[in-house]
Amino acid sequence: MPTLTADPQLPEPDAAEARDNATFHAVLQALSRPGTVHGLPGAGACPVAQALVDRECRVWTDDRHLAEVLAMTGAAMVAPELADHLFLSLASAEAMDRLLRVRTGSRLYPDQGATVVAPARISQGPALDLAGPGIAGAARLCLGGLHADIWRVRARLNRYPQGIEMLFHDGAALVALPRSTTVTEV
């Protein structure tokens, strides 16, 4: 007896599924190859939020428009130090203070480190040398629109295997820095 005949036609993803799938492929590739640029199906943090966040999540954002999108997902809005996903600008000194408080997980559960999604100018601004998993030898990335202290703050947060993942979006372009990546300012 066939048990799965409910959908006899070839299944088609709906628009949300197609968008989330494409977003995640970009995120996964960006994290697997730190410093390489990947295309999102839409601009900004919105597609990333939609692909990753739902009512099982605790989030924080400084972006009013995004706050509405996040509310639709059912995620709980919490303080930055409790959030598992943060969507924020990392351009100000205030943002650096905030970033210093985010969850970095524990050695027992490194997965509890937060995912931080921020706007940046990709391929502009200060040059960074990247090394670590996903990088053959060394890679260079230019990233602008961020506070000057950002890499010192990141280095303080990342006590491997504890740490945070950073996703930077610029329009529909995405780069990522997992905690395993060593960043050196050039």
Binding site: A6, D14, E17, L52, E56, D84, D111, P161, P178
Partner: peptide
Amino acid sequence: AFSYGFLDASAKREMRRKMIKAVAVPGCQM
């Protein structure tokens, strides 16, 4: 009756979140 790709959207999101962490800490069981 069934979501695209069988798993519902919420199950997929959890998989995505965990895959991100798995890639970020290579070899660590999440």
